[in-house]
Design a protein around this nucleic acid. Structure first.
Lengths: 115, 115
DNA sequence: CCAATGCTTAAGTATCTACTTGACTATTGC
DNA sequence: GCAATAGTCAAGTAGATACTTAAGCATTGG
């Protein structure tokens, strides 16, 4: 199975910024142009473009330019890749709890007393 | 319901670093001391301590010191908070697909777009 | 008691990040 | 055609990040 390697570093780094999370949350509802995305944000359009570049580099967003308008949309697979990390951790955690449960179930020796 | 506000910025920022993800992955299996955590890592112990501080500030790890040994362990609630963001996005996405489905079902008109 | 262990603290540095401004190019509407 | 619109590009900057080394201080094993 080929590993398409969405680097988790870049994905989490991208999502660590509130502006970029807001962009993702906005885009997940429907695609939008760059200036449409920039309008409600308290920063220059150039700054928004830079945030979008970070999101694209992380594989969370893609965009196409038609005429003078660039339309952006989310890439659900990118989000799923990041979510998968948490799922994997949860699995480890559960394995750990299982082992702990086994331990507690199988080893009440210490308290054994003569009967 | 009180909002214990695990700031997503700090959580994602913390997880954006591969060393810190490795620390979480290690700690999720079982608690460990600082030097135990540092041993396999290619950096100074001081650097590892700094990473652990970032993880603690993000609410992903907690630690207690007994004697001269500080023992660290994960805080599952911190991970769950971050995972919840993805779940929320997935929900939005599904809502969007539902609306799209409705649109496609109800409006087989023509594709007239202009601007 | 003393050396080794397990951190802690502080200061320094190179690199990265999140912006800014300003100048520029490509489309589009009238 | 020409102005308004939409975005691009480059350079600059303040502050954050990911380390380093070096010095210091409890705790503990022998």
């Amino acid at each position: 199975m080929l590993n398409h390697e969405v680097p988790l570093d870049r994905v989490f780094q991208a999502l660590a910024d509130p502006t970029r999370r807001a962009l993702v949350e906005r885009l997940i509802r429907r695609p939008a142009s760059v200036s449409e995305l920039a309008k409600p944000l308290p920063m220059s359009l150039a700054a928004v473009v830079q945030h979008l570049q970070v999101l694209e580099a992380a594989g969370l967003v893609r965009s196409e330019k038609v005429g003078r308008v660039r339309t952006c949309h989310v890439v659900p697979a990118g989000l799923r890749a990041a979510e998968a990390w948490f799922a994997a951790q949860r699995t480890s955690w559960e394995v750990r709890l299982d082992r702990l449960g086994d331990f507690l179930a199988e080893e009440p020796k210490q308290n054994e007393q003569k009967e």
